[in-house]
Structures are given as structure tokens and as C-alpha cells.
Write a protein that binds this DNA or RNA. Sequence first.
RNA 1: GCCGGGAUGGCGGAAUUGGUAGACGCACACGACUCAAAAUCGUGCGGAGUAAUCCAUGAGAGUUCGAUUCUCUCUCCCGGCACCA
Length: 819
Amino acid sequence: MKNYDHKTIEKKWQDAWEASGIYQASDDSKKPKQYILDMFPYPSGDGLHLGHVENYTATCIYSRWSRMNDQNVLHPIGWDAFGLPAENYAIKTGTHPDVSTHKNIKNFTKQIKSLGLSYDWTREIDTSSPDYYAFTQWFFLLLYKNGLAYKSKAKVNWCESCKTVLANEQAEGGICERCKNQVIQKDLEQWFFKITDYADRLINDLDKVDWPASTVSAQRNWIGRSEGVEFNMPVFDTREVISVYTTRIDTVFGMTYVVLAPEHSLVKTLESQIKNKKEVENYIRATEKKTELERTELGKEKTGVKLEGVFAVNPFNKEKVPVFLSDYVLGNYGTGAVMAVPAHDLRDFEFAKKFKLPIKKVVLPPSILAIPRSAEDLAVGAKSDLRIVSECFIDDGELANSGNFNGLTSLKAREKMASWLEGEKLGVKKINYRLRDWLVSRQRYWGAPIPIIYCDKCGEIPVPEKDLPVLLPTDVDFRPTGESPLKYSKTFNNVVCPKCKKPARREADTMDTFVCSSWYYFRFADSKNKKEFASKEAIEKWLPVDMYMGGAEHTVLHLMYARFFTKVLNKLGYIKFDEPFLKLRHQGMILAEDGRKMSKSLGNVIGPDEIKEMYGADTLRLHEMFLGPIEDMKAWSSKTIIGPRRFLERVWRLKEKVGDIADERIIEESLHKAVKKVGEDIASFSFNTAISALMILLNDMEKAPSVSRANYETLLVLLAPFAPHITEELWSDLGNRTSIHLEKWPSFDSAKIVAREMTIAVQVNGKVRDTIVLPFDTSEEKIKEMVLARPKVLKWVEGKEIKKIIFVQGKLLSLVVAG
RNA sequence: GCCGGGAUGGCGGAAUUGGUAGACGCACACGACUCAAAAUCGUGCGGAGUAAUCCAUGAGAGUUCGAUUCUCUCUCCCGGCACCA
């Protein structure tokens, strides 16, 4: 081989690796296992993008390095094949999703293989294949049988003109994607998974995993644990009570009204009390029409209606306060009712201003405590003399206007007040989560059918496990009609009841694709198993995942759902661990050259194929890794890719310099340093600095008069995980008969890294004034002596008193002088 | 608003128990090779200054012999969540 011809070389070795199967994981190996997983791709029609390449290259390097360190590596790949885009494509073009999806998978496979990614293809999975979704359905049944899947009414996006349910992504901004009409919220029967049962474990177990801080905190936020109290307020002149939840019971004396969510059930119960029924009904109807988006829109003026004739009684001071209905209170959080304290809550404050309600201060900020209290500070907004305060104090402080609790800090008051309520049996301490149950049913075609049968006699019957999979029918019209497409399949809908054998019908909804991806990492351990989602032995052998990598867009949903599934399996005794992904890293997004997101509409998309064609897969891999820290957002650069390419060409040309008579010592230090640095950097996912270390080594080798074969081979081995093709070619060219990727990772000798010479920086009063090169074993005394004789140093210290000398071994000598 | 993460040459980025700021790469300049160009190789490359030296890691303070690194305050940028009581 004369020139570095990436096309020939890369094809040659990709074929060779495929034939020899060197990346296959062994189920029998005694070596320690290492499960390295990428978030499996959705095979879109656009093909692989540079973000995929970044993700897969990083874990490929890590996998190759792990194999060289004698680990039994499981590094699989598969397809998250169900999903909306394929279905939309079907609606538009009439191509069956199964056809387009498999065409895309073919293309993805080709692209991935051409990058030299070291996957074990024997374990490939496809979530849209019946072999796979049989077990997705099995998981549904598992949850169902354990009371973790249930049916309930829920609001969905509904387009009145298209007569169809829309996914959230299709209803952005409350506008139907297809016809541009307003989307409304409609109550429909939907399936839910009871993830909220696991809220506390999902929060607590975050301590067990090595995940990016931002991801952990996003999950915590999403689950939204809050500690407070729930207490009852009698409704004046009735036997009803309004139960409210608050985290700020310390502000309870400042309550000037109560707010119920418009959907609160008490509105019906209290019907006879309400004097302005018409008005109230109108408000409720208006709220129903609003989309979720409109309702939660920020900065929007508060709306509401007073329930005339209804009063709640504050148990602390027996004060009667009015009751309102407002959509700023959510029906599905806490009790759906809040005590409103406008002086200490911003939302209540806005509402109170709008409806001219009294604002009563009961918590004073520390700054006010410091100065004498004026009557104004303590002013109580009397009904006759309404005083609107300009600001609202939401922090903790000291209580005032609060009866027996005056003078307490907010913290203490919360304790005492909660205890008082508990003592009076009026309330309890309560922890609430903002996490909602997971709505899994989709009125969609391209997904796993929900394995439930409805029988007029027996009711809701789960499909018996032996009848799985419930096959997705093919005789379906995708065009939107207003109901789940599966309803219109002749082969699908009509079944016999498993119990009474009378005619029955199937559930026509399919499952959210996130259900498919909540358990796929188990399947790779045992992808061909027909009986179980994975055998106990296979799970024990490979799981949990040791290293997981993928986009940060899955920070919340996918990761939360997968953790939920794992915890359910753990609780039900299927598995011993309770966190699926021990270590997690996200790759940063690759932006277009112009620093903006790559997008078709901007016309700034660059795909891996064109780059690979021009520079080769090895250069592409190296360049993406060298662009910057893996987790950072980085702009693609076609200007600087020449750097990595030149580097590889120099490695190629260095071969000419390989000779037997080389002075090993010249590059010994450099070599051992590189072995250490590259290994450590791969371990910590610092690929950019690992590559820089390799470049430094190459620079040093080029400067040496000649390079021994052994040292050249070491360079190739270190580079092999990054650039698998060129290194394999050069390795083979040297006469090696086995693959370089089966080599052992070299070890380094710390003693050889220690330089024979050291450069000591000399500081005077903190400023570097001189540097001095000395043999490494020079004693401290000797160094001081020599330093004090240096003219550059003398210039700064002569005639001055040396007050202190700080010596850092091998690095610096710092002199502190007077004046 | 809350949570998380950032800010270092012309550019991407290095630098961790606080110890020579700018590794490595790109771009640029000059030189060698060439009839010439490309490629390649060599040298230089934060700013000011002839130099000594001074200034410089978003801004300001603090701790320290010494701060990109630690503490406080602030500005701006990015990401996530967002009426969750």
C-alpha cells in the first residue's frame, strides 16, 4: 500500500470484521461483563445524522477499549421502530409503515456499518416485529395484573374538523397540524400506568446512579416532591368540608379566600348553596373549552368566579372567607383546592388584585424585623378600606398577625401548626408529587396493540399470555376518521371472549412507543428468546447496563419510564437490581456550521455520508471526537476536519520510519505518558484530550531519528479504538495475522513517565521571574542555593528580606520578600 | 420565576488536592522544496512595548506567597421545567 486510500481500506475491513464476528458478545465468557448501550435509534427516513455518529462513535471507542482491557463487552444495536412519523408518512403517501420503516432500517444499517461501529449485530432487535412486541404486550399484562395499569377518563387533544385525536406533537400551540383549526380538550377513556406509585423510589434511587447532575435534577423536578399539610375547612352552614393542600401552612392566618379548581366535585355538591349558578356554569364551560396550553399560559390574566353564598371557615381563626372557582388551580394536583394567601403567594396576589380581595400580611421579612414596626407594615386589608400592597413577600420570615403563633419563624411555625392540626384531627402532614400517571394509549395505528378484550358479559378481559402477540392488522385504513384506526380492521376487532367464548371486541388503541423502549435493554441480553422477554440467566449475566449514552432530550421521559419498568420487575421479583442504567452520559448536540440547529428548512444539514466519502469514516470519527467535550454542544466544522485527516496521513507515513535500530529512550517517556493519558481519557469520556495525547505522541515519534516496530505498534493500538480501519490495515501490513482489535491495551510504567529533568518555576511575591531546568533528583537545599544565585532572581530579591520560601516538589519555588 | 450548566487568543478548545494560562488542532505569516501551484516539511503566532517589563481566563470584590481553579456579589449566554399551592 502506498497511499492512504480510505475507501478501499474501510470497505475491506468492514467485510472482514463482519465475516469473523469479532464484536460478538459471548454468553459463556468468564471475563467480567461490560454492557455498553446506546439509546437505540428511531429509523427515520432522513437517515443517520451527525449526532448519531457522535453518540455511536463515543460508545464504540469505549467498547473497543473495554474489550482490549479484557472485558466481555455487550454492545448491541436495534430499532425503535414504532412511532408517529411512519404513520404520518403512510397517511400522506399510502406506503404501509411496515414497508417504509424496514426500508429505513436497511439504510440505517448500511450507514452504521460503514462507520466501523463495533456492534454485535446478532442481537439486533426491532420493536415493530411481533417477536418483540409480544413482550411489550406481556409487560402491559404484567402491569395490569398487578394493578399498575388502569383505564380512566382523560383529556386528549381533539380536532373537531379532522375528527381525530392528536398527539401532543401534532397539536403544538393548540392548533391542529393538518387543518390549522383550534384543538380542544376532550375527555376520553384512556389507559394509564401507575408510575406515581413509584414516585418516592424514583426520587430516592437517583442517589444510586452515576448520571449527569442536570439529568438527575431534571428528574427530581419532574417528579416534584413537596412536603406540606392537607387540612379540612368546614363550609359555613353545611356539613361539607373543603380539603386544601399547602406547603405554607405558616401563612394560614393570611388566608383571605379559598379557590377550587373548576372541575372540583364540590361545585355539584354545593349546588343548592350557590346563588349565582348561571355565572358559575358559564365559567366551568368556558374552562372546558380551553386547551391545556391556554389554561397554563404564563403571564395570562387570572380569571375566576365567586361562589356567591359559599364560605369556608379557617380553622385557625374561625374566620369566614369567600370561595372562588379559578382555572389557576389545577384539578389533578393536591386536593384541587387551595387556601389563598395573597400577601405571600404570587398567584394568589394577582388574583386578589384582579378581584379586589383583601391582602393580609402575616409573615414579615427580616429587613422589616430590623426596623421598628409601623402600623403600615402590619396593616390588615379591611373590607371597607382595601389596601392593595404593591409587593408580595414569598420568602420565609417571622410570623405576625397569627394569634398564638406570632413571633415564630416560618420553619418553626410550619411544624407547630401542622402538629396543632393533627392534634385537632383537622389535617395531616402530606407529601405530594407532581408526577402524573403515564397515559399510554394512543389512538394510532403504528404501535403495539393493547392486549385487552371487551366482552359484554365478562367486561374487561386481559388477553391470555398464550395468545400473545396480539398482531397488528394490516387491513387498516390510515386515513383519520375520528377513532382508532384498528377499529376498522375486519380481522382485528372481532374476537371471542377468552372467558365465555361469546363474541367480543378488542381494545383498538395502541401503546405509546415509550412503552417499547422501556424494556428493550433487557431484550439485548437474550434477543431470540420466544418464551420470555429475557431469561433469568441472561439478565443476571448482562444487566444492568454499565454505560448508557444518548441524547439529552430523553432526560425525563424515556429514562423515567425505563426506571419505572425496572423497579416494577424488581418489586415483582423478576430481577435483583432496581436501576437499569448505572452510568449515563449525553452527547451534546452537533449544530450546523453556522451555529444554528441543523434543519431542512434552513438548508444547513450535513450528513455523515458525504463527509465519509471525502475523508473516510476514521477521519469522521476522529473529527467528531476532537471537536470538543462530548457533552458540550458543538458546531460542525468542515474547515478543521483537515486536522484529523492530516494526523491519520502522518500515522500512515510514519510507517516508512519504522526501523530496528532506534534509540528507545528518546520516546520512552512520551510513549508511557500517552498510554496513561489515552487510557484515562477514554475511561472518563474525554475523547478530545485523548486524541490530543495521540497527536503529541505522533509529533514526538516524528522528531525521533527512527521508530521501533514495537513502539509504532503501540501507537497503532492506542489509536485503534478511534480509527479502527487505518490501524487494522497498518497492523496487518506489519505482518500481524490477528486483528489489532483483539490486542491487549498496553500498560505503562509510572517510573518511565517521571522525567529525568524538571523545570522549576521561580516566583517572587507570586510572580514568575525565572525558570530553571535541573536534574530530577536535585535536593531542595541545592535548588534554593542555585535559585538565589540566578541574576534574574537576584534582581528581585537583592537587598530585601526573604520572609518565606515555598517549595513544591518538581514544580516551583516561591519566594516571599519584604517590601 | 425555579433548577442545571457555561463565559479562556482570530476560531474549536487544554489546564483539579490552588503552583510557569493558552496543550492539541484550525486559521494566519514567513521560510524550504517546486518553473509554478498544491501537498509536505520547518519556524513563528494572546495584547502593548526596541527592551526591561506591564496587561490578560465575562465584571467587581475577597481569601492566599500564589486564583482560570476556592468564597461572595453582579452581567450575559445555553438547556430543562413552569399557575404543582
